[in-house]
């Protein structure tokens, strides 16, 4: 063979390369995020919102449940009521701070649970394929056949209001889409040669999923579930707005929006405040999610 030269030295010779700093995928993601100032800024706002909800008891200037007949529906800046008062004379600022606790919990928890449940189902379906996949995905398809708000309204409407029922129905809403994303990502990875190679070593299903699949599908799943947080916050507030979430007198942004609606002709500006909080939170979560998507280089 004239075209292939052979010398024993280049077979055994050890190739060396210039020493470079080696970064893992997640380190790379972190590196990219560190220079994405927009995402960092909105991330900071998200953290601020979360902190203000967590430390609401310390931050709230007044008792959020303390009503007062003479102080009903006062405008912004009235006396010590920095954001005015609601229809029962309660301090809106304090109620907003406390309301964040329930609104954010109702928004974030369902996505969290759905990510774990739906993600696991999707990975299992995607990796095993065949009948297991059929069974899981057909079931998911059924729930996918409902517009999200309709499904949430249907389930919590039938079960009756309440925070727990609301969160349960929202969890059910988010399991199917997360399951689909996980399934798609997993079945793509599953067909790559390195999974085949892992099988060729005699590794078991669980080991392959844990070592080889998870690291490759976690990115898309996390990006997708982070984009669902904003949707979930909107839906949760929507449920409360319909009277299906929080029960009065608990403060909640959606519920506040609903009750303040009666005062629309008296003090229109105050009525809009809870919505602003929902809007800002939702925008921030959305933009952070977009930033994560860019940093993780995920196409959904």
């Amino acid at each position: 063979m004239a075209n292939i030269t052979m010398s024993p030295s280049d077979a055994g010779a050890v190739q060396s390369a210039p020493a470079v700093m080696v970064r893992s995928y997640w380190q790379n993601v972190g590196y990219r995020l560190r220079y994405d100032y927009l995402t960092l800024f909105f991330g900071a706002v998200v953290i601020l919102i979360l902190l203000s909800a967590i430390f609401a008891p310390l931050l709230a200037p007044m008792d959020p449940y303390q009503s007062s007949l003479i102080n009903r529906l006062k405008p912004i800046g009235y006396k010590d009521f920095h954001l005015g008062t609601d229809e029962l004379g309660r301090d809106i600022l304090s109620r907003m701070l406390y309301g964040g606790r329930i609104s954010l919990t109702m928004g974030i928890m369902p996505v969290l649970v759905a990510t774990i449940v739906g993600g696991t189902l999707g990975i299992v379906a995607g990796f095993l394929g065949g009948r297991t996949n059929m069974l899981i995905m057909r079931m998911v398809d059924v729930f996918y056949a409902f517009p999200s708000i309709l499904l949430a309204v249907a389930i919590s409407g039938a079960m009756g209001g309440g925070v727990v029922n609301g969160m349960l129905s929202l969890t059910l809403v988010f399991i199917p889409p997360l399951c689909r994303v996980a399934e798609t990502a997993t079945s793509q990875v599953r067909n790559l040669d390195f999974v085949e190679a892992a099988r060729a070593t005699g590794a078991g299903t669980f080991s392959i999923i844990r070592v080889h699949i998870l690291g490759n599908v976690l990115g898309p799943i996390l990006v997708y579930s982070s984009s669902m947080v904003s949707v979930s916050i909107l839906l949760a507030s929507g449920l409360s707005f319909l009277g299906l979430g929080v029960t009065p007198p608990e403060p909640d942004w959606g519920l506040m929006l609903n009750t303040l609606r009666q005062a629309i002709y008296i003090n229109p500006l105050v009525c809009a405040i809870p919505g602003v909080a929902i809007l800002i939170t939702s925008i921030c979560f959305n933009l952070v999610s977009d930033g994560m998507r860019a940093a993780m280089d995920v196409r959904l």
């Binding site: 893992s24 892992a198 070593t201 070592v211 080889h212």
Partner: peptide, 20 residues
């Protein structure tokens, strides 16, 4: 596609050994 993109190659090689 035959190497796990999220894994240092050292780990890709040693994986089979660990499996056994």
């Amino acid at each position: 596609s035959s190497l796990n993109p999220r894994m240092p190659i050292e780990d890709s090689i040693s994986y089979g050994k660990k499996v056994h």
